[in-house]
Amino acid sequence: MVEERSGNAAICLEAVNKWFGDLHVLRDVSLSVQSGERVVVCGPSGSGKSTMIRCINRLERHDSGRVAVNGVDLDESTRNIQTVRRGVGMVFQQFNLFPHLSVLRNLTLAPMRTLKLSKAAAEERAMAYLERVRIPEQAHKFPRQLSGGQQQRVAIARSLCMEPSIMLFDEPTSALDPEMISEVLDTMIELAENGMTMVCVTHEMGFARRVADQVVFMDEGSIVESAPPGEFFSTPRSERTRTFLSQILAH
């Protein structure tokens, strides 16, 4: 169902390999994500899942294979890289807000510099997305004055201000205190329900069950299994997937 349509997929990875020195972190990874599809990537730490999604916006450079996003090939061309990045938002585990800029300025910087929006237009857009993540009252504060959950929602809004067609989430709730996880997940669920193409590296299996079209399990740099959530959780095909699921769902 996936392979034959890979020509016009939103994200297309074909036999991607990557090494960190001698360490083979991605082994022949192939993945195709259609527009509007939500993919959750899980796996033990060190399995290459973060590296894989970081290859999608070229925060990591793949050593062999092909990565294409919205039909644009990621190669050495700076123009291609910028084109892809303009259409792909990313949310990090550590938020990575700009600490010296106010929340509003965090949100308006890239639209003004990269999309050449006027200040007024960028601020209007920023306020709209702050409303959407439900923290418009924090616009004039600095990141360090916000809780972790609020910072992560600002980070999501900052990405959305570029109006990307794809959002990547790299363990967005792993650095959060337990009571703040749900406010971030709610924001992500709302995004998913509005048709955003999403690739999420996360261990939040409840989230995966609720929004994912496809759950991908990675181990030792390879994609071991990929299935719709119902099938993935009830009848995992590989032994490694079963072991992993029993470990994280044990409690």
Partner: peptide
Amino acid sequence: GQFEAADSLALSTIDKLRY
């Protein structure tokens, strides 16, 4: 992470450094 956040927002190299 600051470099990566700026890169992921498609800021140019000059803008990334400057802002």
